[in-house]
Design a protein around this nucleic acid. Structure first.
Lengths: 160, 160
DNA sequence: TATTGTTATACTCTATAACTATA
DNA sequence: TATAGTTATAGAGTATAACAATA
């Protein structure tokens, strides 16, 4: 549930502090991500989508004809994990997987009409969900946060 | 590796854009978290710790005598998932699990001397790791980001 | 009845190794 | 050789249901 660490206590140790944990940036980011992900999951569930399938739809919509390898890179995940994801989207006729004549190893991914329609609906729902979740928070604060997150991403040597 | 979406392309679709994805706050937070988590994993690995075991050690060190239920709440995870974590820490003699006389259902968790020593070493390593990862980023930007993340956490109705 | 710790279980996420077909 | 997609697999991470001991 919502109640963090400062909720009511029974006996034993008194109110639990997480000061030591909160000193680390990473822990705060993780907690924020958990909240966002939980809400996003609620939003996507009625559409039969997960965060990763929604992200894939968005990327395919934005980059028609891209390959699975390109999609994997854009999602910063490994190729094998994409197979079941694209299978799922193709199985629901949201995405087409067409052979590329010039390189018969690769598939060109495109949204179907149904895929584009679903994506539009879901995107609207997710935008609304984010607006609710961020209600009362200045857009400038969110922009500032995103800018800082991008700086961190750039500093990262590992997988993004 | 690091190279994001704007890396070199071969054939097929040209440079992939993730503009549609980046409009969502959640996606940016996820990417930042991925970078932080990847680096943190590298830092904790030599100590045989994961993010969750490190977090547990920190919380036990900060709140000696807390119960597993309290620890679960502080970590915002379900009780069953804590069992193997505490088992692991107790098995390495980093944590003691003592029966509470006044409530014989609960255990009181405390760091051993070895646990406290390891925690001190690891904490120093993680602090150093965060300093490196956030090199060139103003502390005020990080503080601002954390403040915004906490606002999001407070807005969250779901699990934090 | 309710709670603590536990067992069993399952599903998601994501990584690696190795295969195939193409290049 | 190298790459695209695939298969198989494994390990985290995390959730629920149900149980025994205790309150």
């Amino acid at each position: 549930m919502s109640g963090g660490v400062d909720s009511k206590q029974k006996q034993g140790a008194p109110v639990i502090t997480d000061t030591a944990l909160r000193q680390f940036v990473g822990f705060n980011v993780k907690r924020g991500m958990n909240v966002i992900h939980f809400d996003l999951k609620q939003t996507l569930d009625p559409f039969g989508l997960r965060m990763v399938t929604f992200s894939a739809l968005l990327l395919i919509g934005d980059n028609p004809g891209l390959s699975q390898a390109q999609l994997a890179q854009a999602l910063s995940m490994e190729r094998p994990n994409l197979v079941s994801i694209v299978d799922e989207l193709a199985g629901r006729d949201l995405v087409t997987r067409d052979r590329v004549p010039t390189d018969r190893r690769t598939y060109a991914l495109r949204l179907t009409t149904a895929g584009a329609r679903l994506l539009a609906q879901v995107t609207a729902a997710v935008v609304e969900h984010e607006n609710e979740l961020f209600n009362g928070i200045d857009q400038s604060d969110l922009d500032h946060m995103i800018a800082t997150l991008k700086l961190i991403e750039r500093n990262g040597s590992g997988r993004s």
